[in-house]
Design a protein around this nucleic acid. Structure first.
Lengths: 334, 334
DNA sequence: TTGAAAGCGCTAACAG
DNA sequence: CTGTTAGCGCTTTCAA
């Protein structure tokens, strides 16, 4: 940088002003000279000292629980689009639903003084979040609320969408509807279960706890729990799967049992994908607004980076039931 | 930090040595005192000055062309696992096959002085790579070679695997085999096309250019090009799709035309996934070793971070044909 | 509008 | 083994 200053015949302060041009006042002519000198010397700014001086970087962290889940990658993509447009870069970190990894990630991000963090928390510890906030780094909760801290959040109206999905099944005549759920610690999952229970209750159908299963949020869990409910003496006529990965397991289980949907069993999954529409028949699903989730989260975060003490905001987005071929009336009573 | 030094009754240099403990020599007793002081004051190290001083961060960049492609997320996951185990963090950047975004990403990573970069290049410009290397930041090519620069690389033996896939079809009796390819600029794609041509040639089958299609690497392209070849007066009896996203389009096109595989047309796709096995019948695919690709790339990079002038290494991993139900003998001549 | 100079908070020579 | 000291390369007051 001092080389550039020399060549342009100015001070390093002026080079800085000319190049970063942040509200700085430089003669167009001086700027021109500096720019040319920088080009001639193939000079490119180094962010390390800048970050130190500014006590922050233009990087925002996105911490998700499963990088291989299309739901999160869709969210990540839209986050990145928004961030990039504002001149921020995205650091992606994958926790695998492991609270320890989550904390470790957040501590590193704190140490690196990222500009802010968007977090889909495992919900098992908020130590990492507390340190971020203590260091003055804003946090936006994505997909899941974070217990015990008051931060901006972008979530989906899980209860309403589950209610709608289950009501659809009830409307088709189903009475025995299984739910393949997950750990209650994740708020979206427990909200979907609540929506399921509310829909049954409102239609005068008692909740049969044997039909309420908790799987891991993987294909394996969906497969196992589906086999479990199919094995009951009074099996369900419909299955509501609350997660895209478990849905794959559900479909595989039906395939294994040689059961066809919707003739023998109706299926509703969560999250849409090109492949959901490719199954035969195509899957009825609850489609989450992933694009918007990511974009809104990034917007909320960047807004707060600029105005750290704006009022806390919570955005709840609606999901939408996409009715396709995997749901139909229950089979005639055996 | 100076607060901690005060409380522990030592200098900041000793605090640094005690906390980062890099080959540093501190009495266990002193370290103990420093650690306690740090805990008492809730002190946590700030990487910004450290990065400046060390002229580098412990962050490695991973630049991919499509964050929503399961192939790349699987690679990213294994990269991150390896990196994290060595105390590095991963910055993920998505270029969307856009050379401009690729260059911009690499310039930012250069400015942030990441420890190294793993790059699946669009192959349209190596300006970003040149600046990285000029700044002394190592680069590993992933999936695709980078023209004009001599760097470590981890790729798949695309030609051999395509050869194997097409030979499988020929062995079943197919003679008219279409390939749904992509832009030749991406080396894996053009290698797969070469493998396709070699297999035909070795079996005495002429290459019919009307069956060689170049799609974008998206679902849409696969769909369109499949419809195109099906519309020929002499349509193929088998389709080889060289990309996981185009394969989805291929399957959708067959669905649209009410064609069943393998009875009326055999299909081979690229990249395995839980869903490929769920289609009815399940898809025959070329399964790339994504786990290994990511892990080897990260290992190569970290090795080079430590020994910058080790000899350049190129790792070529084999892919494997997984024969399932979507391939069978061609239909009886009409 | 520009320059001089101070400093961001660590790390690493060097001396003791 | 530990302290002193000198930076890392920018940004930003403050004064001219």
């Amino acid at each position: 940088m001092s080389d550039v200053a020399h060549l342009a015949g100015v001070s390093t302060a002026t080079v800085s002003r000319a190049l970063s041009g942040r509200g700085a006042t430089v003669t167009p002519e001086t700027r021109e000279r500096v720019l040319r000198a920088a080009t001639d010397l193939d000079y490119h700014v180094n962010h390390l000292p800048r970050n130190l001086r500014l006590r922050s970087s233009r990087i925002i962290g996105l911490v998700i629980s499963d990088i291989e889940n299309p739901y999160f990658t869709a969210v990540a993509r839209s986050c990145e689009d928004v961030a990039q447009r504002q001149g921020y870069h995205l650091v992606l970190s994958n926790t695998d639903e492991d609270a320890g990894r989550e904390v470790a990630s957040l501590l590193t991000m704190t140490a690196e003084r990222v500009a802010g963090v968007i977090l889909a928390s495992t919900g098992q510890s908020n130590e990492g979040v507390r340190r971020l906030l203590a260091t003055g780094i804003p946090v936006v909760a994505l997909d899941r609320r974070i217990e015990g801290v008051d931060v901006d959040a972008v979530t989906v109206d899980n209860e309403a969408s589950a209610y709608q999905a289950v009501s659809h099944l009830i409307g088709l005549g189903h009475r025995r509807i299984a739910i393949i759920g997950g750990p209650r610690t994740a708020s979206p999952i427990s909200e979907r279960q609540s929506g399921y229970e509310a829909a049954l209750r409102d239609h005068g159908i008692p909740v049969d706890q044997r039909l309420v299963r908790q799987a891991d949020l993987r294909e394996h869990g969906g497969h196992r729990e589906t086999l479990h409910v199919l094995d009951l003496e009074d099996p369900p006529t419909a299955v509501f799967s609350v997660n895209n990965l478990t849905t794959i397991g559900v479909v595989r289980a039906l395939r294994d049992c040689n059961l066809h949907f919707p003739a023998q069993l109706s299926v509703i999954g969560f999250d849409d994908s090109p492949v959901a529409a490719l199954l035969d028949p195509p899957l009825t699903v609850v489609d989450q607004p992933t694009r918007q989730l990511g974009a809104r989260a990034a917007e909320l975060l960047l807004r707060r980076v600029e105005r750290p003490d704006a009022p806390v905001q919570e955005v709840i987005l609606p999901a939408r039931l996409v009715v396709r071929g995997s749901t139909g009336p229950p089979p005639d009573p055996a």
